[in-house]
Design a protein around this nucleic acid. Structure first.
Lengths: 223, 223
DNA sequence: CGACCGTACTCCTCAGACAAGTAGACGTGT
DNA sequence: ACACGTCTACTTGTCTGAGGAGTACGGTCG
């Protein structure tokens, strides 16, 4: 089980060891770690190297060094980056979550949309037709429209979730479009127009339903 | 207006300065920073101090030092912790997002649930009646049931999102229950039973609808 | 034109020394 | 017995200097 090459610097390795020992419960939350000199000897690295490892964990919010007092545990594990979590998740799972968010957002948008929201939606809808040459441009124009829907829902959490999904979905859609262009741009555009119209008409159920069926088709294409 | 005593170590100050200069666009994404010796002189700190600052930003995922090559910018700003984002968001926004996730999860669960899922749901449903004395116990038993629904949906992303919401929703619900106990526990339990039954009967639309109305009532109570 | 190699530059690690700060022990006076 | 100030041991913070290891680039040779 020997590591092939130590592609991580010593400081990063030391940080990993420390983190695993923290996770194992060796030093509970709020507890003090042994002194730097002691730990450095334990891990077999120099003090400066150990200090860099501590700084790295401090950057992640796990440790908190206080001069004169010691190094204290402030969190037991690291909150993993969403981006990497989504990268690991299957594209189908991501789309399903996106359906959940956008359908609800569409319903809320239909209740709360302002005239300015409607103008923004119509503008994004028109832009979708004009700017769609390369797959990148097409997908980006599409994302602008979908984001406008979520924006009109007036919900920070939903908007945040949507933005978190964008990178993952964007690359997947671009890859798909490069392999197989849109079957019929007309019906695709018509579906989006129907969504915008439902929001403009303040029809929550219809808006949610339109969004759901449109994204389900995408899921079928990508899955 | 004077800062109290709050003194950061030099390394932390150096990290802040570097981060602000990165945010200002001085070194774009993927670009290389000046060498350690150069930067140390620029900031007026020693090399080891500067190295600790770099490590701290590396821990946050902003910088990526590569031996022999240089230090590179891998992100322009720090991904804020989700927990703190949710804390800032209004409870209504959080509940609305929860509605989106759980309603979709309920529909998916109705399609994908296994017999084992149904058993787990029924067990959690029964537990909800037995263990509900203090607000904490009641809310925790409730969360177990709701989580079982999302688990049955077989979607990692949705489950991850649900777990992210739990802390925020949990405290809010406990606070509410301490002020005003549940009006009628019977109808509350009946609503949950209907949800479980819809999933067991493989009725996606009904499951989603039941979940949605139940959570909308919660939103009205908390909002 | 392509493969090889050397050099300059970079980060990585260690060791030692001293400064700055904290917290607990200790003694003293009331 | 209690309150207060001091003193000391221990901690993290910072700097310097040296050498090791890896990378990128340009020159040279076939």
């Amino acid at each position: 089980m020997a590591q092939t090459v130590q592609r991580h610097p010593l400081a990063a390795q030391a940080a990993e060891v420390l983190l695993s020992r923290i996770k194992a419960g060796e030093w509970p939350l709020g507890h003090k770690l042994p002194g730097e000199t002691t730990l450095a000897v334990q891990l077999g690295v120099g003090r400066s190297t150990l200090r860099e490892a501590i700084r790295e964990l401090a950057g992640k919010g796990v440790l908190d060094p206080r001069q004169g007092a010691g190094v204290f545990v402030t969190a037991v594990d690291v909150v993993e980056d969403w981006e990497s979590k989504l990268r690991r998740a299957s594209i189908v799972s991501v789309i399903e979550a996106r359906v959940a968010i956008e359908a609800e957002a569409a319903a809320l948008a239909a209740q709360r949309r302002t005239p300015a929201d409607v103008r923004a939606l119509r503008r994004a809808l028109a832009q979708r037709v004009v700017a769609g040459q390369t797959p990148e441009e097409h997908v980006d124009a599409d994302m602008v429209l979908h984001r406008a829907v979520v924006t009109a829902a007036r919900n920070d959490v939903l908007l945040e979730l949507f933005d978190g999904f964008v990178p993952r979905v964007r690359t997947a859609m671009i890859d798909m479009l490069k392999l197989k262009p849109v079957a019929s741009p007309e019906t695709d555009q018509a579906a989006h127009a129907a969504l915008v119209q439902a929001i403009a008409d303040r029809q929550p159920r219809e808006a949610a339903e339109t969004s759901r069926t449109h994204l389900s088709a995408l899921k079928a294409a990508l899955g």
